[in-house]
Amino acid sequence: MKHLLSTRDVTREEAIQLLDIAEDMSAVNDREVKKLPALRGKTVVNLFFEDSTRTRISFEAAEKRLSADVINFAAKGSSVSKGESLKDTTQTLAAMGVDAVVIRHGASGAPQVLAQSGWIDVPVINAGDGTHEHPTQAFLDAFTMRKRLHGAGSRGKGLDGVKVNIVGDILHSRVARSNVWLLQTLGAEVQLVAPPTLLPHAVNTWPVSVSFDLDDALAQSKPDVVMMLRIQQERMHDAFFPNEREYSNMWGLTQERFYSLPAKTMVMHPGPMNRGLEISSAAADSPQSTVLEQVANGVSVRMAALYMVLTGEREVTHD
C-alpha cells in the first residue's frame, strides 16, 4: 500500500492485514511503555487544512507511539485567493524533507491530487477530504465491530454477514462513504437510513440497501450495528429537513428507539455527538455504545496505516 486515499481501492486481504496490524498496535497501547521504534528517524507531517482536533491528536498519538518525528501544519484557507495553495504548502514541506503526509482537507479529492501531483513523492494518508472519504475512520469502525464480535479471536476475520445500519446525513458524510466501501469489502450487509434529501442522487448504484424509515429499518433488518452520523444543524437552513425536532423524532436514536433494540446491538458514532439530536444520552452512554472504544481504536488503526505505508511491511516486527 503506497498511499491510503480511499477504502474503495483497498482489497479484502489488505483490509484484514491492516486490521490485524492494528491488533498488534492495540497490544502496544496496553503496555506500560506505549512505544515502538518502528518509525524512528521518519518525519510525518499532519497537514490540516480544516480544523479537526480529534483526528489530528489521534494521528499525532499514533505517530509518536511509533517513534516518528511529528510536524503539525495547520494551514488556513485552501485556494490561491485565500492564501498559500496546496501545491506551495506541499512543496515547502517536501523541501524540508518529510517521509509521509497525513492530510485533512475541505476539498474532496485533495489527498488524491496530492498523491498524483508530483509535488511531493511520499506516502499520503487521507485524514478526511471534503465529503469524499475518511478511510482511517472506517478502519477504526470496522476494527471496533470486529473486536466486539470476536474479541481475542479477531485476527484474520472479516465482517461477513454483519448487519450494519448507517443513519443520518449520508450525502455530506465522508465517514459513510468510506464505511460503505470497506464494510462491503469485509462482507458486511449495509443499510443506509436517511431522509431522501440527505442521500446521494445515485445511491441506488451503491452496494447497499436504503430505507427512509428508521423504525421500519431497525425492526426489519435487526442490525448488529447502528452507526449514527453527526447531523450538521445548519443543514435545516438549506431545506434538507424542517427543524431539529422533526429530524430527531424521525431519524434520531431516541431513548425510546434505543430501548427497543436488542441488548447485543452495537451503537456507534464517529463523534463529536449532538446529544439529543441524532443520538440520545441513553444510547450514547450505554454499555452498547462503542464511542470511547472507537477513539482508543483510532490510535491503533492509524498506527497500523502509518506502519503499512511507511515500512511497506505487512507484519509487525518486534524487537
Binding site: 485552501s78 474532496s108 485533495a110
Partner: peptide
C-alpha cells in the same frame, strides 16, 4: 487555476 484541488 487548474494545478490544484478540484474544489479550488
Amino acid at each position: 487555476s487548474k494545478d490544484c484541488e478540484w474544489g479550488a
